[in-house]
């Protein structure tokens, strides 16, 4: 009896230690970037373009570029992903087709991001001739976040009680009317959560836009979907790996990292808050 109590204490302590170390590492990371990045950030940093050979000025074009790319990715993948989720949950019973689709979604989710970059380069940039552009980058990012959007939408749709669908159909609604008027409105918060999480993912990805959209420096702001764009994550990479004045540039990189971190953390915190609330509602608490 005594021995088993000691082993329980020791075991629980080890598990606590694992949790603690995990959070500790991440705490250090957050502290490091926040404490050093905060000095770099100013109104000017957020609103002006780089100057002095990338050693001075701000990162506004990179912020704008990231917003364009992310927005484009969502515009492309949301309708596609939602349609896929609707087809899988509302139209088809469990059969071979759904199984094939489910497996391909899972495997698409596991493809390394740099491979998406290769695909985007070969297909959008070269084959379709979109060049290194916001369009190519958005499409590539869009495919990358597609599986996430599908899974989140499916989860949201399946959480709608079957009784809503039955009631609607029994009243003489068609299937599409049932989806549009009952199922979609009720699952909207859940779908939104998935979309927000995907925004966070798309905003932070670097490898897929490396060859398809991003440039380290450009004059002015992108003016069409065929323009190249600066992007925050790529800017951090560029400053650290291709910079010529490490001292001054790492300071800018800290600022960029902090902005990107805050953007992504804020976005995912909103999404997770949404989801927790949604779960509480459905659990009836």
């Amino acid at each position: 009896m005594k021995n088993s109590n000691i082993s329980q204490k020791a075991g629980f302590f080890i598990l606590f230690l694992c949790m603690f170390i995990t959070l500790f590492f991440l705490g250090v990371l957050l502290y490091f970037i926040i404490s050093k990045g905060i000095n770099a950030i100013s109104w000017e940093f957020l609103t002006s373009a780089p100057s002095g050979g990338m050693t001075e000025g701000g990162v506004a074009p990179a912020i704008v570029g990231t917003i364009y790319l992310t927005f484009g990715a969502i515009v492309f993948s949301l309708p596609l992903g939602l349609a896929c989720a609707i087809y899988l949950t509302e139209y088809t019973p469990d059969n071979l087709v759904t199984n094939i689709l489910r497996i391909s979604i899972n495997n698409l989710a596991g493809v390394p991001s740099v491979v998406f970059g290769l695909f985007g380069l070969a297909v959008f940039v070269k084959y379709l001739g979109f060049g290194v552009s916001i369009l190519s980058g958005s499409l590539t990012l869009g495919i990358l976040i597609l599986p996430g959007i599908i899974s989140a939408s499916r989860e949201a749709l399946t959480s709608i009680p079957q009784s809503f669908r039955e009631a609607s159909l029994a009243l003489g609604a068609t299937r599409w009317q049932t989806i549009r008027k009952i199922v979609l409105p009720a699952s909207l918060p859940g779908i939104l959560t998935g979309v927000i999480l995907s925004i966070g993912r798309a905003a932070g990805e670097t490898a897929p836009i490396l060859f398809t959209a991003a440039v380290f420096y450009m004059k002015g702001y992108p003016n069409s979907v065929f323009s190249e764009a600066m992007a925050l994550p790529y800017h951090i990479y560029g400053l650290m790996m291709e910079g010529t004045f490490p001292e001054k540039q790492s300071q800018i990189a800290y600022g960029c990292a902090l902005i990107l971190l805050l953007m992504v953390l804020l976005i995912s915190a909103i999404a997770i808050y949404f989801r927790q609330r949604q779960r509480r509602i459905y659990n009836g608490k």
Binding site: M19, T22, L23, L26, V28, L29, F32, I33, L197, G200, R201, A203, G204, E205, T206, A207, P233, Y234, I236, Y237, M240, S250, A253, Y254, A257, L260, L261, V264, L265, S268, A269, I272, Q276
Partner: peptide, 26 residues
């Protein structure tokens, strides 16, 4: 748990370029 799990999920969403940056400078 209702505090830790969301925290862990948020941390899982930090972009890799930030980890790379942290690795380089720290």
């Amino acid at each position: 748990k209702s505090f830790l799990k969301p925290l862990v999920e948020i941390l899982a969403g930090i972009p890799s370029v930030i980890y790379g940056f942290f690795g380089m400078v720290a």
